[in-house]
Design a protein around this nucleic acid. Structure first.
Lengths: 192, 192
DNA sequence: CACGTGATGACACTCAGTGTCGCTACGCGT
DNA sequence: ACGCGTAGCGACACTGAGTGTCATCACGTG
């Protein structure tokens, strides 16, 4: 196609995953990642704003998909239902990638720096979901709290999925989490 | 007392708050903070592991206080009540410091780096609270979810407090948040 | 008075991240 | 076929965070 090998971003991402898995996140330099991808350190930063970001390429699409799903929810749906199903759908799509996603999650768990980045991505997602709820007419505080509750259930479900080898259905894990959250908060599992 | 001026940590913290407020977090170097505190850059890192940490000195004590309060809760208390009151008490103590805490919160909100650090501190608090619940015999997933719900309410209440000038009672804000969370999740405000 | 100790300074170093300039195939128009 | 703009990259120099190591020097203790 062009005079350079194609898909520099993808090569950098693959090289980073390999090296991080081999020697751990902290013991790998950006120069090494770039070299394995056939590039120089300076070019790494032309494709990714920093060293952590190479592991979070999909986060923008994921957030957009979830937010779209919240908007797509029928007007009759209660806010918490809209958020829950949106996250269940998004999570199910994520989980389809299988083992690589588990590896990535394990890698993130091994590094404080990466966990910080993961947390701020989830925070951005929370804010975006809350905004989508406000668009649906939900009041400010309620939107924030519903989004936070949904993300809490999502994270719990996702951690459970990543932590076990058996392929369990993600929406089921998500429903379990929401139900347990209802029981813990209200002492009842009454739904609409 | 000693041959050096006392309370180097406190001087560094004060210097950092001053400089960050004057010019913003990103435009201040560690060397400048150290210099204003009458020290050198190398000594800054003997008191704080990194540049962000200088703004999070109290987080260890805060976490310990909240966890202690969860343990102190009567056996009759439901997990969510134990967590809620523990966070309400801890938050009320925080809020007593008044304007400096608001300034610090505003500073954190202005920097992605600082927000990342704040989020991982809250995550550590969440984990610690969940562990305290497990000690009380709460099962694994339920402990995690209850802790996450409590922290969600706490953060919402704290943000509301920090965002307005009128001194509103923190436990009241916390109760409001929990109630709205119950309504959003269960569609009812039924309590035990 | 000698001796250990603890907080600091001095120095050199690694690595993440940025600014800037120059290079060179590629596409495009004439 | 020729000139031209441009996108992607290398080279180079630089700042700033964070670390390892050694020297220093007042203090307390015996």
């Amino acid at each position: 196609m062009s005079r350079w090998d194609p898909d520099a971003q993808g090569r950098l991402r693959a090289a980073a995953m390999e090296l991080f898995s081999e020697r751990g996140y902290d013991d790998v330099t950006v120069a090494e990642i770039a070299e394995r991808a056939g590039l120089k350190k300076r070019s790494f930063f032309r494709h990714y704003t920093d060293k952590r970001e190479v592991l979070f390429t999909g986060s923008v699409d994921f957030q957009r998909a979830v937010v779209d799903e919240v908007r797509r929810a029928p007007e009759s749906a209660r806010p918490v239902e809209a958020v829950t199903t949106a996250l269940a759908i998004g999570g199910a799509a994520l989980v389809k990638w299988g083992e690589p996603v588990r590896q990535r999650q394990q890698l993130i768990a091994s590094s404080l720096e990466l966990r910080e980045r993961e947390l701020i991505k989830m925070d951005a997602l929370t804010t975006a979901v809350a905004d989508a709820l406000r668009t649906r007419g939900v009041d400010d505080v309620s939107a924030t709290l519903t989004a936070r509750a949904g993300i809490a259930a999502f994270t719990t479900a996702f951690d459970r999925w990543a932590g076990q080898s058996e392929q369990e259905d993600f929406p089921t894990l998500m429903d379990d989490a929401i139900e347990q959250l209802r029981v813990a908060l209200c002492g009842c599992d009454t739904d609409s």
